[in-house]
Simulated assay, not measured.
Amino acid sequence: MTKSFETITLTSDEKGQIIRLAFDTRTRGNVITPVLLEEFHAAIEDAVARKPRVLILSGTEKSFSRGADIDTIKSMGPDFQAYIASEFKLFDIVDRLPFITIAALTGIVIGNAAELALACDFRVATESSSFTLPEVAIGFVAPALRITRYLGIGAAKDFLLNAKMWKAEEARQNGVVSRVFADAEFEAGLAAFAQELADRPPMALAATKQGIATAYGYGPADYPGEEHWAYATYLTEDVKEGFAALAEKRKAVFTGK
């Protein structure tokens, strides 16, 4: 069964056990647009109604997503607050889905796209892909809570505060990426991994996921602070400087204002 939105296509296998949510905003880097965010909520709701065992989130063959479109968000003004709220709500929904979720990572996975991937249970990557949360490099708060589930405090500080970019294998070695496949073998490897999980007992998986969530104590109360600071840093002079430096391909000079 296939269902199409403007930017998202949902397809399922013959048994309806594995659903693939593929998004394509037809932009350079497959950036996350306001329209895509809106459709994500509807598409996830549709997927939940089908009661799959596994949900795969994927972008295009060349790019899972390079995250937010800087040219769009820098001109949003107060509307950016609603954009951020929609993002955080989506991440929380994905976090709490009662079935297995896999992010299929291709290309350079940046910022809020990386955060979406971190909300999934697993991240399966092409060998050529890269993973980064570079927000501090342009004056934004970097989302620390999800990435720190996978990294120790020292590694989390090094990764986030230095706005590092990891190739897929380095991300796997640090526990952020679950599986890495050669580009030519990616689809076959992804399909086999998804099927392996779909063959497991779904009620046991759902209960175990909940147990892990409880053990780590994460829930909706964890994230309002990050959402607040995402908008608060958006209003700073440093972010304006970060945007300008990015556009002009120069080093930013931050003043702490």
Rank of each mutant, 00 (worst) to 15 (best):
T9E: 11
F122P: 01
A168W: 09
A252L: 03
Y223C: 07
I108E: 15
E14P: 00
G16M: 07
A43H: 11
G111S: 15
V253I: 15
V94C: 05
L21N: 05
R172N: 01
G77P: 03
D199N: 15
F80A: 03
L37M: 14
A144P: 02
S129M: 04
R172D: 02
E39Q: 12
A42S: 15
V54F: 07
F159P: 06
T7I: 05
A119M: 01
R53Q: 06
L116G: 06
A198Y: 07
W166A: 00
R28Y: 01
E169A: 09
S58L: 05
A245F: 02
G175W: 11
Y223N: 09
L246H: 14
I102R: 05
S129D: 04
L21I: 11
L235G: 04
D95S: 11
E87D: 15
L235A: 07
L118D: 00
I84M: 08
T101M: 11
P202M: 02
V239N: 14
F23K: 08
T233P: 03
D222A: 14
A82I: 13
P52T: 03
P202N: 01
T255H: 13
G29A: 03
D79V: 12
L205N: 12
K249S: 10
I8L: 06
E45F: 04
S58I: 04
F186V: 06
P52N: 03
I18C: 02
E227I: 00
Q173E: 14
V239R: 14
A252M: 05
I32N: 01
K249G: 00
M165L: 04
A247N: 08
I18A: 03
P220H: 08
A47L: 11
R20P: 00
E196T: 14
I70G: 06
F140S: 06
W229K: 09
A22C: 11
G29M: 00
F91W: 13
A215T: 12
M76Q: 12
T2Y: 07
D158S: 14
A142M: 02
L190K: 10
E127Q: 13
G111N: 13
I147C: 05
D92H: 15
F186Y: 08
A207H: 06
T233K: 07
I73H: 09
L160Q: 05
T7G: 01
M165N: 11
I84S: 12
F140K: 08
F122R: 08
Y218P: 00
E6P: 01
F122W: 10
P134V: 04
G219F: 05
Y231E: 05
F254C: 12
F140Y: 06
G111K: 04
L55I: 12
A85N: 14
S4E: 12
L246M: 12
F131S: 10
I108A: 15
I56V: 14
